[in-house]
Design a binder for these strands. Structure first.
Length: 261
DNA sequence: ATGGTAGGAAGCCTA
């Protein structure tokens, strides 16, 4: 049996990016696509176009900001919308579901800049909630894949200009400490597991010709439970969509989960 | 020290 190819992509508006998303789905053929920054309500999501490509869809949308989705060629079951731990959190940044016994989540972790605003403590509190929830997910001992835009640059080698980003919310020690905490729970970072010593990026700013200069950062990640990590196949960053017309500022990252023995 | 670009909503916020 074929592996399950799971991709994550922050599309920066599903409406503006629809032609890019369609051509990418046709070419990359992921079994599961985790999308972030839809910037639409559930009602306004362009379902038909994507369903016509053979995908089931679960969305957790919001007007103007945020919004996450799970697309899957196989049935989507037991959908949970929103990250547990704060009933007052209005931001649509988390959706989780089961596909073929694999629990998957699409995560849009808060950016946290500027760090002297309320946005930074919101990011850190959100990460604390994610740690709590990941601990619970791990207790089920299932194959679990938490993919998305984590807005965390794990290490200096994941950034084109570590000194320039030192005080940025994506690099701040408080953000990185929580990122490490997630891994200390027993989660495996898929890209680093397969590529222990290369620098590669998943996001390039629209400004200043960052793409042309390869001034990027790696902030889109997969975290895997032990049961998923045991089945991990290839992990790659697909730079092709970032080089197209009217691109997202992020490019897709994908991993393969091999069939259970 | 500032502004550079993109998207959305509506003339400012988020990234």
């Amino acid at each position: 049996m074929a592996p399950m190819k799971i991709a994550t992509w922050n599309v920066n508006s599903i409406k503006a990016r629809l032609p890019r998303v369609v051509e990418w789905l046709e070419q990359a053929q992921p079994d599961v696509a985790l999308l972030q920054e839809l910037k639409v309500t559930d009602e306004a999501f362009p379902r038909e176009v994507i369903e016509d490509l053979g995908y089931n869809i679960a969305t957790h949308g919001q007007k103007t900001y945020n919004g996450v989705a799970i697309l899957s060629k196989r049935p989507i079951e037991d959908v949970q919308r929103g990250l547990p731990g704060d009933d007052g959190d209005e931001q649509a940044r988390y959706i989780e579901a089961t596909i073929d016994t694999v629990r998957v989540a699409s995560i849009y972790l808060p950016n946290g800049n500027p760090t002297d605003s309320e946005k930074f403590p919101y990011k850190l509190a959100w990460m604390d909630r994610l740690i709590d929830h990941a601990r619970e997910l791990l207790s089920y001992e299932d194959a679990t894949v938490l993919g998305g835009d984590y807005n965390v640059i794990p290490e200096d080698r994941d950034c084109y200009d570590p000194a320039g980003f030192a005080t940025d919310a994506l690099c701040r020690p408080e953000s990185r400490a929580r990122w490490r905490q997630l891994q200390f729970l027993g989660l495996t970072e898929a890209f680093r597991a397969r590529h222990p010593d290369i620098s590669a990026y998943s996001y390039w700013d629209y400004q200043g010709g960052a793409w042309q200069k390869d001034h990027g950062v790696r902030i889109d990640h997969f975290l895997l439970s032990p049961q998923a990590a045991d089945r991990l196949g290839k992990v790659e960053i697909d730079r092709t969509p970032r080089g197209k017309e009217r691109p997202s500022d992020h490019t897709p990252v994908w991993c393969e989960i091999e069939p259970a023995l």
